[in-house]
Design a protein around this nucleic acid. Sequence first.
DNA 1: TAATAAGTTCGATATAACTGAACAATATGA
DNA 2: TCATATTGTTCAGTTATATCGAACTTATTA
Lengths: 295, 295
Amino acid sequence: MKLTLDALTVLDAIERKGSFAGAAEVLFRVPSTVTYTVQKLEDDLGFAIFKRVGRRSVLTPAGQVLLEQGRQLLVAAQDVVASAHQVSSGWEAELNIAIDTVWDMQNIYPLLAEFQQLNSGVQVNISEEVMGGTLEAIIEHRADITLGGPPPVSPVQGIQFESIINAQWLFVVAQDHPLTTAPQPLTEQDARPYVSIVIRDSATQSPIRPHRSLGERPMLRVASMEQKIQAQLQGLGVGFLPRHKIQHLLDSGQLVALTIEIEAPVTQQYCAWRSTNTGRAAQWFVDKILAMKDL
Amino acid sequence: MKLTLDALTVLDAIERKGSFAGAAEVLFRVPSTVTYTVQKLEDDLGFAIFKRVGRRSVLTPAGQVLLEQGRQLLVAAQDVVASAHQVSSGWEAELNIAIDTVWDMQNIYPLLAEFQQLNSGVQVNISEEVMGGTLEAIIEHRADITLGGPPPVSPVQGIQFESIINAQWLFVVAQDHPLTTAPQPLTEQDARPYVSIVIRDSATQSPIRPHRSLGERPMLRVASMEQKIQAQLQGLGVGFLPRHKIQHLLDSGQLVALTIEIEAPVTQQYCAWRSTNTGRAAQWFVDKILAMKDL
DNA sequence: TAATAAGTTCGATATAACTGAACAATATGA
DNA sequence: TCATATTGTTCAGTTATATCGAACTTATTA
């Protein structure tokens, strides 16, 4: 690797100022130094960068390519330094948060707003995952923190888990649904004729496990909890929904919770983060999230 | 920019060999030089890259980021040199050929095969365009050479055009189409009831001009000449097609050419290339294409 | 506890990067 | 047309710095 970033800045300056002399001036060097640098680079790379035509020098095709791509290299180099510098400040360059669809996104926005006040320079990325999705995201390093989702089947090296909330699932239907007039508690037989709304698992690798489908029944697969709530609101089907995401809909009567014989378990929702290499931002979010749990 | 590619190669070697001493060995330097380089880089960048723990040094988080992204920078730098070197050999690094859909792709494959024999190292990219598409592609530097398509309305700086073939358009229908029994020459009135197959213009900017649609008639828009031929073969509609692309279908009787009163003009197909900075590959292809014209 | 190995410090040295003056080539303009 | 400014190159001299080697510190290990 004979190429140096310094030589590229010289090339860049030459092209921008239109002459070796101009480049020398902006770089606080002497013209002969510029000549030296260019000649050395040409010698090292083994091809001509400038075609000397009289006193003026013009880029060869190869020189044009070198300059064009070299400029991208220079900005990339600056980005690398900036990223490393950001990390050295204790704040990560980037923080990826994977949030399970059972979580109420409304809860997270105030946290994000508060975080922005810190002017940390951290690029925060939020992704919404379903079921196994959060777990997979953090294991595959696509996420630094997960909010919601199941705990790992077996402990994972370097990842810490903490239970945050107990999602209480209710069997709900739209307000004008036929099942609202059926005698409660319902049996599985009662629910069988109606379409079951199922959230498609966003985990690509984990074995498919349809969520809370009641035996073999017609299903409508949707992509997120929000879509499932909407689908059930529209009367497209029935199914279990976490109480905390639909409380206002229950209060307004748009959705009705029915008792049913089928187990409607309380699922533990977990927060996960990497115990190694935790930057300030990850630490900040984990602290805040665990504090919210105590409320 | 205090960062140097040399320092990054040192970091890379340290991490790969697991020690300063190992890095020194593979780089044919003395251990103290490695220490010096690392300390200088840390000093220049203003943050610690290694945490000295006893006699062993481990990367700080910032150091990890620097190394990780620095490695990408190193391969990028090698790519830059490789590209420039390729161009300096006279062959372009890349050659983008935009081919109009009226062209028979079969004609181009032998040319590509012959070119590969040259072992030029040029990455050839073919794209298929419709109508204004080739013109737009070369003007916007997305293509270096175009095959087929219209000439420019006004001359374009730095781009040369040459007429290559005259595409002769025929009004054709499927063999069992009702129009085959109608008295010829057909009038526009005769054709009006039938769906017109129209190729969607792939040029995004140029004003939309539906190609050869006969007045206001039901249209089926397709994406390429191949699709249009298939659509007409299936009897989905009627329209003009270039003779050289359907000759075998006319011979076999699957398509039937009908005379019609509407003008069925002979359109000039043009080859275009940039007259400035023509590398060997572009020159080679242009020469071959213009030679084919004379056959 | 000695021996080994790794990393650092520091003075010396060789390499390279840079400077300034002189010069050649070309454009500018009176 | 010819002087004049401008540009790029050459080259000898200077400065800076990357590298080396030896001595030393600190851990690991035998």
